[in-house]
């Protein structure tokens, strides 16, 4: 009996290091951020409890309203463009002889950091950058455009940069999904005389649902927390016009040192991602049942 209880006790030692790490570096900071979001913490003065003031401010702060709008644009565009492109590329390169090389080519941008992507695309979109040089030289533009200073063109320019980075990942995931579709089903459709389009819409797409769920969730989370590309390309400017919620959170916290307010933005952002993520997974689960 004694030996069993000892054995029970020691069994807790095995996950203990991991548990301590999770508690110290994940759970504790989360609790602290939630606590800080109800205070006016600014790193210098003692924290003062301010109730829901920070949360109420989010809904009246004009810059936060712009950030929220931009974040929604990012989510919508990232769900639309890189996902569709990823699916399209996956379908087209699946059966071509140099598909492995194509996979590598499309995957390379993902190996570059977000900051690196930002630097590359900033150089492309600058007034004296590559894009203007090409467009002016072939006569499409009379004079260069400051893409990163124009609203909302700057947000769309950054979405293009992000699309370049994540399309490869989406493509690889969709390729995995395509490879898992049983060939018998596709052959049966062929024998039944189904056209390529009909096979794609009635067989391939429904069978890709599990992988599509993963791609959608990854893209939603990614677009809500996008920061590095924006920070490098525009730093949220001009006039805070291209900020997303993640950038606003950083600016309020580490630019203006309104840590409490920044914490409240991060809590709201996390809640939005959590609710959308859970909602989407439930919806997919219901459909599958």
């Amino acid at each position: 009996m004694k030996s069993k209880s000892f054995s029970n006790w020691t069994s807790y030692l095995y996950p203990a290091p991991a548990l301590i790490m999770v508690l110290a570096f994940l759970v504790a900071p989360v609790i602290f951020v939630i606590f800080a979001s109800f205070t006016d913490w600014d790193l210098l003065h003692p924290m003062k409890f301010v109730g829901l003031k920070n949360y109420l401010r989010i809904f009246t702060d004009p810059y936060l309203i712009i950030s929220t709008r931009n974040t929604l644009i990012w989510v919508a565009m990232i769900l639309l463009v890189p996902m569709l492109l990823g699916l399209l590329f996956a379908v087209f390169i699946k059966n071509i002889w140099f598909s492995n090389r194509m996979k590598t080519i499309f995957y390379i941008p993902l190996a570059i950091s977000g900051a690196g992507i930002g630097v590359i695309w900033r150089w492309i979109f600058l007034r004296a950058g590559f894009l203007n040089a090409v467009l002016v030289s072939i006569g499409i533009l009379g004079e260069p455009i400051s893409w990163l200073l124009k609203i909302p063109e700057n947000t769309f320019a950054m979405i293009v940069a992000s699309t370049w980075q994540i399309t490869g990942l989406n493509m690889i995931l969709f390729l995995m999904g395509l490879q898992n579709i049983p060939t018998e089903v596709l052959e049966a459709a062929k024998i039944d005389g189904a056209s390529e389009w009909r096979t794609f819409t009635s067989i391939i797409l429904p069978l890709l649902k599990p992988i599509t769920t993963i791609v959608v969730i990854l893209n939603i989370i990614g677009s809500f927390k996008v920061f590095d590309i924006i920070w490098i390309m525009t730093a949220g400017g001009p006039a805070r016009s291209s900020e997303t919620l993640a950038v606003s959170m950083y600016k309020e916290s580490f630019g203006l040192f309104r840590m409490g307010y920044g914490a409240s933005i991060s809590v709201v952002l996390s809640l939005i991602i959590f609710v959308i993520g859970i909602g989407y997974l439930r919806m997919v689960g219901r459909e599958n049942r």
Binding site: I151, G237, P238, A239, R240, L256
Partner: peptide, 15 residues
């Protein structure tokens, strides 16, 4: 807390 927000407003004027 004024310098950075003021720059955002000056940005608006410049544009």
């Amino acid at each position: 807390t004024i310098t950075m927000p003021a720059c955002a407003s000056f940005d608006k004027f410049v544009l």
